[in-house]
């Protein structure tokens, strides 16, 4: 077994990895990962299917609720619920990740022994695979959303400024959600059966990030918790922006909060990773 002398800071790549190198890595790796997606397109389409099911079912359920209450419930008409959940579908596809399971597999099979020797932070490898999946599946997702929008008579109240603001909002949301969930995935370095924790996280996100229902339908204390914690900023905020439900001031303030949360998330992630790396080598990985 290799005795890995891990200098955690060096492993994160403080000394050798310039932005230029990183950009080249992303370019090359993206091409490879995209080719992989194409090669395994059957499996990829099945994953896309599973991403669509939950928002679609929620759409039907809440539409039924609105219809039963004479056209609108909780401040949303049936058409507005359709718009909401189609937006959730898109934003979720753009912000979700699955790598906690891969991290667990890598820890179990010892693959990290090799990864720890590289000068680049391992988060980049996973991020580029994540982006390749999203680039590939966005192509069929857009027409699917258009069809669903027509079928369910979705009512969007989007203004031009919402579309402009949506771009940074969703990129920041992706950054926050991805960084936090990647850091959470590192729990596999400490606990062998992290599945329950990931399931719990997914459930909490399901409610507090607005996947189950618009956050405005929850009692005020819950809304406060979702806003103070990063959940609203991981998914609900870009959705609210896209739907045109926020004023210009609220959008700007929200973007600011997202930037702050992204910084916090990166700090947490780096701290957890350096602990995970030193623990891994301490246990003789």
């Amino acid at each position: 077994m290799v005795d890995v002398d891990v200098d955690a800071d060096a492993a994160i790549g403080e000394r050798a990895f310039s932005p230029g190198n990183l950009a080249a890595f992303y370019r090359q790796r993206f091409k490879v990962d995209l080719a992989l997606q194409v090669a395994y397109r059957g499996a990829t389409f099945i994953w896309l299917f599973s991403l669509i099911v939950q928002p679609l079912v929620s759409l039907v359920v809440w539409r039924t609720v609105a219809d039963s209450q004479g056209g609108s419930a909780g401040g949303y008409t049936a058409g507005e619920y359709a718009a909401y959940f189609i937006a959730v579908m898109v934003v979720n596809q753009l912000t979700f990740m699955w790598h906690m399971w891969e991290i667990e597999w890598r820890v179990r099979t010892g693959v990290y022994s090799g990864i720890l020797l590289r000068p680049m932070h391992p988060i980049h490898e996973d991020l580029v695979a994540n982006l390749a999946f999203k680039a590939f599946t966005m192509v069929p997702l857009v027409p699917i959303c258009v069809v669903l929008g027509i079928l369910f008579d979705a009512q969007f109240e989007t203004r031009p400024m919402d579309i402009v603001a949506f771009v940074p909002a969703v990129i920041l949301a992706l950054g926050i959600r991805y960084t936090i969930e990647w850091a959470l995935g590192l729990i596999a370095f400490w606990i062998t059966r992290a599945a329950a924790i990931h399931q719990l996280w997914a459930s909490v996100t399901f409610f507090l990030a607005g996947q189950m229902a618009p956050l405005s339908l929850f009692p005020k204390p819950i809304q406060v918790i979702a806003t103070v914690l990063p959940f609203r900023w991981m998914l609900s905020f870009p959705v609210e922006v896209l739907l045109g439900r926020l004023s210009g001031r609220e959008i700007l303030a929200g973007l600011g909060v997202q930037v702050v949360w992204l910084a916090i998330a990166i700090v947490i992630m780096r701290a957890v990773w350096s602990r995970a790396a030193s623990r891994y080598s301490a246990v003789g990985g």
């Binding site: 359920v61 609720v65 209450q69 419930a73 599945a195 329950a196 229902a213 339908l217």
Partner: peptide
Amino acid sequence: FELIGVSIHLATALLGLAVIFNQTSSL
């Protein structure tokens, strides 16, 4: 662990029902 997992699943489902039945009395 299976029990933990299914409990989370059930709690999620029942909480969801609570949110819905805050808005309507029948689905």
